[in-house]
């Protein structure tokens, strides 16, 4: 449901006209538009913004760990339209898995690998679902809130 405060907003209203069920919530704060999207509809919504609303660029994909809330991971997509000089933030809350946006925006490739590496969110349909920052044999996902910041030891090679 699009909140009443956003009925006047052009972008939010345009999305609500095509995918009314996809919007869970929305907010306009500090001049930045945020729309909470149903995770199952994220690809369709990204596609809509890219094709119909001229959002040519995906600036970044990242996540926020809302532990201990459920669902804990909030995927955050920042889109930009260079032609219209607009930015929008899309969010989708998931527990563990979401569809990969690489089919819509090629730029999502490394960002999704980073989110997988550091948060452990799985992107189904990702062409190269591997760790990107941490070593391949690393255990755990460092940016999770329940992963310690200090006091963690890692031994390289064979030593155990």
């Amino acid at each position: 449901m699009l909140p009443e405060t956003l009925q006047e907003n052009e972008l939010a209203a345009a999305l609500a006209a095509v995918y009314p069920a996809a919007i869970i919530d929305g907010v306009l704060a500090h001049g930045e538009l945020t729309l909470h999207i149903e995770p199952d509809d994220i690809l369709a919504v990204l596609e809509f913004f890219k094709r119909q609303q001229k959002f040519e660029r995906l600036s970044t994909v990242t996540a926020v760990d809302r532990y201990p809330m459920e669902p804990r991971f909030e995927l955050v997509y920042h889109l930009q339209s260079v032609a219209r000089n607009l930015r929008i933030r899309l969010k989708a809350s998931v527990t563990a898995e979401i569809a990969s946006a690489t089919a819509v925006y090629a730029a999502a490739n490394w960002y999704e690998r980073e989110v997988f590496d550091l948060f452990g969110v799985v992107f189904s349909g990702h062409p190269n679902p591997k760790r990107i920052m941490m070593p391949d044999d690393w255990e755990g996902h460092p940016l999770r809130r329940d992963f310690p910041t200090h006091g963690f030891k890692y031994t390289y090679g064979e030593q155990k």
Partner: peptide
């Protein structure tokens, strides 16, 4: 409480802090 995506033009391109 809140969130910001701030963009500046760094020498290398779009630098954004979320």
């Amino acid at each position: 409480e809140g969130e910001i995506y701030q963009v500046v033009e760094s020498p290398r391109g779009e630098l954004g802090y979320y």
